[in-house]
């Protein structure tokens, strides 16, 4: 049993695979959708546009096995960046519906006229952990992560939000409901902070 990474067309796989290895786990790039159910956990990475991501999930046959994995087998799934957004119901970035595992909508950053805040939100930002959760420890020290995104998930169920970050307003940095988890930042590119998150995911019982 191992961690599978669907090789959808918009992923950045190498760094995720390497980070899982550094965290003591083993991740394999999945060539075919049938392999999903053989995995104990799944990571959905991704950079890119929402519709492009959804289309490659549908066209290449990933949506059905992933849906079964997340909602019936109920094994741990972690979405990273676009991968997290794909888990939501819909996105202002596209017209296609999302996977809908988390009751959330993905919205574009909007700032008042004259704001000096730039889009995308890009760089290192600190997070605030909202509740105990399986992914991010509540520590006293500052935890910082690398973000690159123009859209962010707005959860309908506030209790799904496990961490927020401040950019104009408080935005969802990570969410989790049961076995479904998402990080808007890039743990694979966030030094020991991200490595810590991946390690917790690797060590999750399943």
């Amino acid at each position: 049993m191992h961690i599978g990474i669907p090789s959808i067309a918009c992923g950045n796989f190498a760094s995720v695979v390497n980070t899982v290895a550094r965290a003591g786990g083993q991740a394999t790039l999945l060539a075919r959708p049938e392999q999903v159910r053989e995995c104990s956990k799944i990571i959905i990475p991704g950079v890119g546009a929402f519709d492009h991501g959804m289309r490659s999930l549908h066209d290449e046959g990933w949506s059905q096995p992933l849906h079964e994995f997340a909602t019936q087998l109920k094994r741990p799934v972690l979405g990273i960046c676009l991968g997290m957004q794909l888990m939501c119901r819909s996105s202002e970035e596209g017209v296609l519906p999302g996977l809908g595992w988390i009751d959330a909508q993905v919205r574009r950053f909007k700032f008042p006229e004259g704001s000096s805040l730039k889009i995308p939100h890009m760089g290192w930002n600190t997070i605030v952990v909202c509740r105990d959760n399986p992914l991010i420890a509540r520590t006293d020290g500052e935890q910082r992560f690398y973000f690159v995104h123009s859209y962010h998930a707005v959860c309908s169920q506030q209790e799904d939000v496990i961490a927020t970050t401040r950019y104009g307003s408080d935005v969802t940095a990570a969410f989790q409901r049961d076995n479904v988890m998402g990080a808007q930042f890039h743990p694979e590119k966030s030094h020991r902070f991200g490595l810590g998150l991946i390690r917790k995911f690797v060590e999750l019982p399943c």
Binding site: R22, Y146, K189, S190, H191
Partner: peptide, 24 residues
């Protein structure tokens, strides 16, 4: 790299960019 990496030099097609992103 355990931090974000930006690469430049000789990139002139979408296909090359795709290859670079797949490399991480």
């Amino acid at each position: 790299c355990m931090m974000p990496l930006c690469y430049g030099g000789g990139v002139r097609s979408l296909e090359q960019a795709r290859q670079l992103f797949a490399l991480g």
